[in-house]
Design a protein around this nucleic acid. Structure first.
Lengths: 200, 200
DNA sequence: GCAAACATACCAACTGGTCGGTACTGCCTG
DNA sequence: CAGGCAGTACCGACCAGTTGGTATGTTTGC
C-alpha cells in the first residue's frame, strides 16, 4: 500500500504537471497549482520532488515513457510495407490532432521553448523525449529507402527528425490561431513530401 | 526632443523585451529584468505600458514591424522567376539560422507557445505577426503555380503557412539540442519539398 | 517502533503594479 | 516678455499578494 500510495501521489502530480504545463507553460505553473490540481499538499510535492525544476525533469521523463507506450501500441505499425508504415504514422499523428489544444500539443516541445536557456536539466530531458521518439521512425524510413533504392541527399535520421519538426511547428500555428486544422494542414504537407521523396 | 526621448525609452524597452523574452520566455521575464536591461526605471516602464501584458502585445507588434522591414529589404526578392524567389526565401531563412539561439529564433513563436491560453491579446498579436509574414510569400507561390500550371491538392496560402510551420518547428529542435544545424536541416527538407512540388 | 509518506504552518524573496513627486518643454496671458 | 500653467516623461520608494521552499509535526504500513 505504501508503494502504490507513493506512485499514486507522484503520478497524480506528474499528470497534473502534464496537463497544467501544456495549458499555461512551465514558469506560469506554480507548485500550488500542481498541488491543487493533483489534490495533494505541498508537503507531498516536496517529498517526491526536491524542487520545481526536478518536477520538470520528471514530467519530461514521464511524458517520454507514456508517449512511447502510446505510440508503441498504436495501429500505424500494421502495414507490411515500411513506407506504408511511415505514412500511416503521419496519418495517425494527424488524426490525433483534435479537440482542446492542450490535449494534443506536446509537453516537451512547449517546455523546451520556454526553459531551454534557463533549465538545462529539463531541456536535456525534453530532447531525450523528442529525439527518442524520432528514432522509432528511423528503421522504417531506412527500410523504405533500401527497398526502393533511394539514395538522395538526406538520411533516415534526418527525415525522422523533420517529421517532429513539422509536428512541433504545426502545434505553434494551431496555438497562434486556436485552430487545430492548421497543424493538420502541415501534416498533409509532410505526407505529400514523404510520398514525393519515395516517388509514391 | 521630448518626442525622441519618448520613443527612445519605449524602443529600448521593446528591444530589451525582444532579447530577454527570446532567452527566458515571457513569464520568466520580470518587469525589473526589462527595466534593468533597458537601463530605465519602473516608473518609465509603467508610463509607456499599462501592464506587463500590454508590453507583450507591443513587443509582438514591434517584432512584426521590424521583421517586416527586414524581410522586405532582404535580397531574396531579386530573382525574376517567382519559384526562384520562393526558394531564395527558404535559402535566406536557412542562412540566417546561426549563432546564439536567442538571436535567430522567433519572438512571437516563443511567446505563442507559452501564453496562448492565458494572454489572448498577446496571442492575437503573435498570430498577426506570423501569418502576416506568411502572406508575403503567397503571391510568389501563386505566380509559380500559375506559371507552371500546378493544380494540386494544396493552395499557395497553405504552402506559405507550411513554410512558417517548418521554421518554427526547426527552432524547437534547435533549442532542444542547442544546435542550429537541426533547424537548417529542416529548412533543407522544406526546400526539397517545394522543389518536388514544382517538379524543379 | 521505525521509516516512508504525507500534512500544516510558516518564511524570505520576489512579483506586478501604484503613487506622490520632479524635471523639462511649450504655450498662453497680462 | 515674465510668469503661470499644463502636459509629458520619468523617478523610485512602497505595497499587497504570490512564489518556491522549509521546518516540524502526524499518520500509516510493515
Amino acid at each position: 500500500m505504501a508503494r502504490s500510495a507513493v506512485s499514486d501521489t507522484r503520478t497524480k502530480l506528474l499528470e497534473a504537471a502534464r496537463d497544467t504545463i501544456r495549458t499555461r507553460g512551465f514558469t506560469a505553473t506554480t507548485v500550488d497549482d500542481l498541488c491543487a490540481a493533483a489534490g495533494v499538499t505541498k508537503g507531498a510535492f516536496f517529498h517526491h520532488f526536491k524542487s520545481k525544476e526536478a518536477l520538470g525533469v520528471a514530467a519530461a521523463e514521464f511524458w517520454a515513457e507514456t508517449t512511447a507506450e502510446f505510440f508503441r501500441t498504436a495501429p500505424y505499425h500494421e502495414p507490411e510495407d515500411p513506407l506504408e508504415r511511415v505514412l500511416a504514422y503521419v496519418d495517425f499523428r494527424k488524426a490525433i490532432i483534435e479537440g482542446d489544444i492542450a490535449e494534443f500539443t506536446c509537453l516537451v516541445g512547449t517546455m523546451t521553448q520556454e526553459i531551454y536557456g534557463t533549465h538545462p536539466d529539463i531541456r536535456k530531458a525534453c530532447a531525450v523525449s523528442i529525439f527518442g521518439h524520432a528514432v522509432t521512425l528511423e528503421a522504417d524510413i531506412q527500410a523504405a529507402m533500401d527497398e526502393r533504392g533511394i539514395d538522395a541527399g538526406w538520411t533516415a535520421e534526418s527525415l525522422a527528425r523533420h517529421t517532429q519538426c513539422v509536428l512541433q511547428g504545426g502545434f505553434i500555428l494551431a496555438k497562434a490561431t486556436g485552430d487545430p486544422a492548421l497543424a493538420r494542414e502541415s501534416a498533409d504537407h509532410l505526407r505529400r513530401y514523404i510520398e514525393r521523396l519515395f516517388n509514391a
